[in-house]
Amino acid sequence: MCATCGCDAETTVTMHEPGAHMHDHSHHEHTHNHDSSASKVLSVEKDILQENNLLAQRNRGFFEGRNILSFNLVSSPGSGKTSLLEHTLTALKGEMEFAVIEGDQQTTNDADRIHATGTKVVQINTGKGCHLDAHMVLHAVQNMQLKQNSVLFIENVGNLVCPSMFDLGEKERVVIISVTEGDDKPLKYPDMFHTATVCIINKMDLLPYVPIDLEKLKTNALHINPSLKIFTLSCTSGEGMQQWLQWLRARVHEAVTI
C-alpha cells in the first residue's frame, strides 16, 4: 500500500493528466520518486462544501435572530413553484409579512409575477448557474431589509438535481412535483426528496388525464424520506390549497412561539 495516499493495486480511480506531471511517478507500482525532504503530506480533512455551509449557517442565524421563517422551494422547471407562490401570497395577504427571492438563470419574469401580488421580491439571475447557493442568498438578503416575524420564500432555479446539495440556510425545503411528471420521479431524483422536509404534489386538477399512480408516487417519496410531509393540491382549481395554507399558518405560529 502506498504510504502517502494509501491506495492499493485494486484502486484504479487515480487520474493523471498526461504530459503534465513533471516527476517520475508510477503510481500503481509505488515507486514514488518524491524527495522526502522536498515534499510533505498534509492532513486537510475539510468538507468541500464548507464555505457554502458556513454561509448557510450565517443566513440561518440571521433568519432565526429576526424570527424569519424561510423556505427553499425546489422542483424541476414548470412544476408550479411560482404559481404556488402567487396563490399563497395572495391568499395570506395581510395575515403575515412575506418576502421572496427568485432564482432563475435569466429574466425577471418570475419576480415580475411576484411583484404583481404586492410582495417585496428580489431576482437573482445565476447566468449559467444551475442552482442558488448560500452566498447568493446572503447578498440578496442584504438588500432586502427583511422584517421581523416575516416569512421568506426562496424560489430556487428549476432543477431537481443540483440545488439538493446547497444549503441556503432555510428552515424548510419544499420539493414540488406535478402529477404530469410521473410517479417514479422521487426514485429518479432521490437526492432532492431525501433532503426535502415538505413535498407538494401540484396540478391535481390534471390527475384524470395522466397515467400516474398517486399512491405510488407518495410511497416512492416516503421510501426515500419517511419523514416527508406531503400535500396534494392544485393551484388552478384551488383543491387542497387550504390544507397547505393551514399548515403554513401553524408553522408561522410555531416559529413565533419558539
Binding site: T4, C5, S39, K40, V41, V44, K46, D47, I48
Partner: peptide
C-alpha cells in the same frame, strides 16, 4: 423498514495533500 440512520456514504471532503516544499 425505510426509517434509517445513514452512517456513511455522504462524505465529500479533501482528506490529504502531498505538497512540494
Amino acid at each position: 423498514s425505510h426509517r434509517m440512520d445513514i452512517l456513511q456514504g455522504k462524505e465529500l471532503s479533501v482528506k490529504t495533500m502531498v505538497l512540494s516544499q
